[in-house]
Write a protein that binds this DNA or RNA. Structure first.
Lengths: 241, 241
DNA sequence: CGGTGACTTGAGAAGCTTCAATACGAGTGG
DNA sequence: CCACTCGTATTGAAGCTTCTCAAGTCACCG
């Protein structure tokens, strides 16, 4: 009936617990001030979705809205496919991040969501949020705050002038958002294609390529396929303002 | 103590009633399925703010979050002032539109809000929303839906490639959003400066000027200072895709 | 080994920005 | 009513950024 297998076991798995604590949904899955029985009830409403493999659709534009998603492992892109064939990439989502809020307005997802690699998600049915919000102020607050944070980061990431600035901002943002994997934050592995990044930044893929080449020549980055190393973070940061 | 005079009288004023019915907050100020007594209570929480005059600040970056605002009359701009002196204009708001959601996340307004002309607002204290949401599912739903709609329109208005496309999209959006004033939708009066528009679109003011001149030469627009007339809406729409 | 898709590189054209000069419009004071 | 002024808007010319089209390279996979 539905494509989700219930999230049941593994709550004792320490790795998973840690993952949950770094998730934006943690305050909703493990709410303070909620009776233990209800807490379990709330958590039991959270489904695990996936795994989705590279290129697989999580949802499609027009699909009926049903749940907010959080990335557990992997990454996704949210895409508006336009008439002229080109696609506008609204954003990427990495582990711990939540997406799907735009679907609430009209009850349908307004864009496609595609897995960039092998990806598992948590699906939080909106029903459950509504139900619990009426009983627990904390849930209401957390949900609103989550949406607000999303809006804030969207406006903050607004179009900086200049392709180089935008790329620098993107790389630093990606580094910050991927830092939970306790690896070197100056060495990131991008799961998306150059074209995805370019369209996300609103530039041509060729321009992106040239920018990478340029930054490599200037010893700011070391680029090797999908892995990018920051050789000089200061200069990268200086590019933004 | 606070800068708002309570919104009390004039509920019988037909012009005002009409204004409220065209406001995004209408479902919260006049909620269905809420007892009449509570309805009055909810409405009594809504303050009228202003009037603010041209250039006056509604709130400043860092001000403590307290209420969501709706434009009653006039218009405002939301501005991020950046280090390098330049300002990024996140958006404009016209009568009936709601703004301020980004402030929920951290409890402070993340940007300045400036009146573009003589402007009055409705201020909806977030306390009241929280209080009522716990008692009435409808309020909860409406608030979330409002936020979601905001997020959706933000992502939809995302950066179209090309300055001309962006301007066309901006003008058509402005026309749609100002159409409540029962005037010709093909003839709008912009309350903001050229610089405001340019920075909002992420282009130089000079480029904007040239675009206007160009579109006038091509008989798409007739521009006279702040008033813009669409001479050929079809062609304007065709520019977008 | 050949094929396919992703990425890079090059060259010319188009778009946009910058700086500088000019024009306009509303408000002020003579 | 005119001249002055200040802020805003327009116009011009030069230069830089970015795009497009086209060709070439690379890596991965059958």
């Amino acid at each position: 009936m539905n494509p989700f297998s219930i999230y049941t076991a593994k709550t004792d798995d320490s790795k998973l617990r840690r993952a949950c604590l770094e998730c934006d949904l943690v305050d909703m899955c493990f709410p303070k001030g909620v009776a233990t029985s209800d807490r379990l009830h709330m958590k039991s409403k959270v489904f695990r979705a996936g795994p989705y493999y590279h290129g697989e659709l999580v949802f499609r534009k027009g699909d009926r809205f049903f749940a907010i998603y959080a990335v557990r492992e992997g990454s996704v892109k949210n895409v508006f496919s336009e008439r002229n064939g080109r696609e506008r990439i609204i954003g990427f989502n990495f582990p711990g991040e939540v997406f799907g809020f735009e679907a609430i307005a009209n009850g349908v997802y307004p864009n496609d969501c595609v897995a960039l690699e092998t990806t598992t998600l948590c699906a939080l049915p909106f029903d459950a949020v509504q139900e619990f919000s009426l009983r627990y102020p904390h849930i209401f607050s957390e949900f609103i705050r989550l949406m607000s944070r999303e809006m804030l980061s969207q406006t903050e990431c607004g179009l900086a002038a200049g392709a180089k600035k935008r790329l620098a901002a993107f790389l630093l943002s990606a580094s910050m958002r991927l830092k939970n994997k306790n690896t070197d934050p100056d060495c990131i592995t991008l799961s998306m294609t150059r074209q995805d990044i370019a369209y996300h930044l609103g530039i041509a893929p060729e321009t992106l390529s040239r920018l990478f080449a340029d930054m490599e020549k200037n010893h700011v980055l070391a680029v090797q396929g999908k892995s990018v190393q920051f050789l000089n973070r200061k200069r990268l940061e200086a590019l933004i303002d």
